[in-house]
């Protein structure tokens, strides 16, 4: 009897060990589920969470303490989409975020990549570009407060992918999006804390 118990326990552990990564690689999972373990050192999920927190902190500071502050002061300098050709202008927070992602892409030692995606992008380039990204954006929009983690294979290489909800943090974000000429007919009317899209972080495995 005792032998059978141990056999069943071992079988259960082995099955779980096989099934959990399979499920995660096929479909990804929410933040409540187990993180992918790393044999040594920091796990990809921990790393993704850490870099994401830095990205968000920087962008929130830029959006609230630079862009919104300039607006409040009616300063002659303002955030503007076509800032490169407009005197007295600075990039929009989303552009600042994308510029950072481009610099990381240029850095061969960065070891990861990230980007903004949305189901309702004002810039066509920010549409979800893979099945995984679409699923991840749906998940973070439908599960407030949760992230989405999983694995994805692109060009024959495996990646750990983390998707984080991108929320409307400053009034300047949603008012600009809601007013933007590029928004489509079915574009949602965004308000504070709405999930406007997602931040995708990819780490090669």
């Amino acid at each position: 009897m005792k032998r059978k118990y141990w056999f069943n326990s071992i079988a259960t552990i082995l099955a779980a060990g096989c099934i959990v990564p399979l499920v995660m690689s096929a479909s990804g999972c929410g933040s409540s589920e187990a993180a992918i373990a790393s044999p040594t050192g920091i796990s990809p999920q921990k790393f993704a969470d850490a870099v994401h927190s830095v990205m968000m902190a920087d962008r929130t500071v830029y959006a609230t303490h630079v862009v919104t502050n300039l607006k409040k002061q009616s300063a002659p300098v303002k955030a503007e989409e076509y800032w490169e050709d407009t005197p007295n202008s600075i990039p929009l927070p989303a552009q600042m975020f994308r510029m950072g992602a481009s610099l990381v892409d240029e850095n061969p030692n960065a070891g990861f990549s990230y980007g903004l995606r949305s189901k309702w992008p004002l810039n066509e380039q920010n549409h979800p570009k893979s099945e995984f990204e679409t699923k991840a954006l749906d998940y973070v929009a439908e599960h407030p407060g949760e992230n989405f983690y999983g694995e994805e294979e692109l060009g024959g290489k495996k990646y750990f992918v983390a998707a984080y909800p991108d929320r409307a943090v400053a009034e300047a974000c949603w008012s600009c999006h809601n007013e933007h000429p590029n928004r489509g007919d079915t574009y949602p009317e965004f308000a504070k804390d709405d999930v406007m899209g997602g931040v995708i972080v990819r780490i090669p495995l």
């Binding site: 481009s102 990549s113 893979s130 692109l154 060009g155 024959g156 990819r202």
Partner: peptide, 15 residues
């Protein structure tokens, strides 16, 4: 720019 295609999402395009 070449760096734009470092984003793995463009891997299939690069092929």
């Amino acid at each position: 720019p070449a760096s734009k295609f470092n984003d793995p999402i463009n891997a299939e395009r690069l092929q």
